[in-house]
Amino acid sequence: MDRSTQVKAMASEARMSVLKLLAEPEKHFAGQWSADPLEFGVCMTLIAEALGVAQPTASRHLEILKQAGFITVRKHQKWSYCKRNEAVIQDYLNWLQLELSVT
């Protein structure tokens, strides 16, 4: 995994907000009717609305999170759905803790 991409992904307040929102999709995106947000993921359109940004801006943030491995994106019909990749997030946090620990 490219750690510099992951650090870049975490260096944005908007991207951190996306990860926080996706941590509790049933709470933040309960109104999603097209698919279960917990099981399937959250529609990119709803993420853009939650952030209060235009779809192209949200798409760019989501692409960086995807490149970092922090989210997975799955297409269904005409929509794209995002879901946190908990294993990669935990791996990053473990790596960061080791990097910052006193030896």
Score class of each variant (00 low, 15 high):
Leu22Ser: 11
Gln67Ile: 02
Gln32Phe: 04
Phe40Cys: 05
Gln97Lys: 13
Val18Cys: 02
Thr57His: 07
Lys75Tyr: 08
Pro37Asp: 13
Arg3Leu: 13
Asp91Ser: 12
Ser17Gln: 15
Ala35Trp: 02
Ile89Lys: 10
Leu38Phe: 11
Thr72Cys: 00
Val7His: 06
Gln77Arg: 13
Ala68Glu: 04
Leu21Ala: 09
Ala58Lys: 06
Ala11Trp: 01
Glu24Gln: 13
Lys8Ser: 15
Gln6Asn: 08
Gly41Ile: 07
Ser12Glu: 10
Lys78Ala: 01
Leu51Arg: 01
Ala48Gly: 14
Ala58Pro: 05
Asn85Met: 10
Thr57Ala: 14
Lys75Met: 11
Lys27His: 04
Pro56Cys: 09
Gln55Trp: 15
Leu19Arg: 12
Glu86Ser: 08
Phe40Gly: 03
Lys8Cys: 06
Val73Trp: 10
Thr45Gly: 11
Val73Thr: 10
Asp91Leu: 05
Ala23Thr: 10
Ile64Cys: 02
Glu63Met: 03
Lys83Cys: 06
Glu13Ala: 02
Pro37Met: 14
Ala30Tyr: 06
Arg74His: 08
Val102Trp: 12
Ala23Leu: 02
Ala14Val: 00
Arg74Asn: 07
Leu100Gln: 14
Ser4Ile: 08
Thr103Leu: 08
Val102Asn: 15
Lys83Asp: 08
Ser12His: 09
Arg84Pro: 06
Met16Ile: 14
Phe70Thr: 00
Cys82Trp: 00
Val88Trp: 04
Val88Met: 02
Met44Gly: 15
Leu96Tyr: 12
Gly52Met: 02
Lys20Trp: 11
Arg84His: 05
Arg3Thr: 13
Glu63Ile: 02
Lys8Asn: 13
Leu22Tyr: 08
Val102Ala: 14
Thr57Gly: 01
Ala48Leu: 05
Ala48Asp: 12
Gln97Arg: 15
Ile64Gly: 01
Cys43Val: 04
Tyr81Cys: 08
Ala50Arg: 11
Lys27Glu: 06
Lys78Cys: 00
Ala48Tyr: 08
Met10Cys: 05
Gln90Tyr: 09
Gly52Ala: 05
Glu13Arg: 08
Ala11Ile: 01
His28Phe: 13
Pro56Phe: 06
Thr72Lys: 03
Met44Val: 07
Ser101Cys: 12
Glu39Phe: 04
Asp2Thr: 10
Phe29Lys: 04
Ala9Tyr: 04
Glu26Thr: 15
Gly69Trp: 08
Leu65His: 07
Leu96Val: 12
Tyr92Ala: 12
Val42Ala: 05
Leu62Glu: 11
